[in-house]
């Protein structure tokens, strides 16, 4: 177990190292930041000064080593627009994103697994067909489209829920601000989890040990929940964790559309303002969160299911 953990940890660090390298490479291709910061009134002397300050006048490999060193120490540079440390700005916004992501994934997991199990034990019934059709529709709607439609219907036409803003306002909690973005965000994962659960359940339900359980006359409920579902959950857990990791690193459009002050909204703002350090920092931060979540899931998984360790 320990050697497995160490192996995974080393690999995770290698992956993060790769991400930082890729980010450095792409950022090198971007338009010269010294000119971007100056905008229209660029004069050569200031530009040279800025270049020197950012270390842009050094050869590429020296910049790369410097960049690696800075990232390793948690220094992701400063924002062009606010001049605050990037990591600090991202960390301040991370709570809002995490709230949204975790609440959406809670709903998505419960609903998705429920629908998937029901669909599987009544496969090819009316319920199953309808559920799977809706799941396919759910997969087909891009997040920002769904967000806008929800805004249009529930905010504009029905006027049930607020469409823009954060739930903490003046130290008070307004949960109604969470409802729409959370539901919109949950739609795609619900659809995918339902599909994964269903196909995994169908596979397990036709396995020998479930047939044995049926043959020995085990009660239906116990067959479904104790024998089938527990074994069918493997791919489901993988899907849920991948989605959680994916949502934790920002839900750009939902945050943008609903004006939810998380790291996604910050990144989109940074893009429109060409604030490259924020974009670069968000990419690295996201990759680290993504890798860390996957690492934790892998280790927990290996502990719960010894089969994983072997493969």
């Amino acid at each position: 177990m320990l050697s497995f953990t160490i192996r995974r940890l080393t690999y995770s660090i290698l992956v993060i190292f790769g991400v930082v390298t890729v980010v450095f490479f792409i950022m090198n291709l971007l338009p010269d930041p010294a000119r971007m910061m100056q905008g229209q009134r660029a004069d050569l002397a200031t530009q040279t000064a800025i270049r020197h300050e950012l270390g842009l006048d050094l050869p590429a490999w020296q910049r790369y080593v410097r960049f690696l060193g800075n990232v390793a120490q948690g220094d992701l540079g400063r924002s062009f627009t606010s001049n605050r440390p990037v990591l600090q700005s991202i960390w301040d916004r991370f709570g809002a994103t995490a709230t949204l992501a975790i609440s959406a994934m809670l709903i998505a997991s419960v609903l998705g697994v429920g629908i998937g199990v029901l669909s599987a034990i009544r496969s090819y019934s009316l319920f199953d067909n309808a559920a799977m059709l809706f799941a396919l529709i759910g997969i087909s709607i891009p997040a920002f489209v769904m967000g806008l439609l929800a805004m249009l219907v529930f905010g504009s036409w029905l006027d049930w829920l607020p469409v823009s803003g954060y739930m903490w306002e003046g130290g008070e909690l307004h949960l109604e601000y969470l409802v729409l973005p959370m539901l919109v965000l949950a739609l795609r994962p619900v659809s995918i989890i339902a599909r994964v659960t269903r196909s995994s359940m169908l596979e397990v339900m036709s396995s020998d040990y479930v047939r044995t359980a049926k043959a020995k006359g085990a009660p239906w409920k116990s067959i479904v929940y104790r024998h089938a579902l527990r074994n069918a959950l493997n791919p489901v857990v993988t899907t849920v964790s991948a989605w959680l990791a994916g949502l934790l690193v920002g839900t750009y459009f939902i945050e943008y559309i609903f004006n939810w002050p998380g790291i996604g909204l910050q990144a989109v703002d940074a893009i429109t303002r060409s604030d490259f350090p924020i974009i670069q920092g968000t990419v690295i931060f996201s990759a680290v969160i993504f890798v860390v979540v996957n690492f934790i899931v892998d280790v927990v998984y290996a502990r719960l299911d010894p089969r994983v360790k072997l493969s």
Partner: peptide, 11 residues
């Protein structure tokens, strides 16, 4: 590990 959308935007 890199968020697809951000990578696409950066490129």
């Amino acid at each position: 590990s890199i968020p697809s959308l951000l990578l696409i935007i950066a490129i």
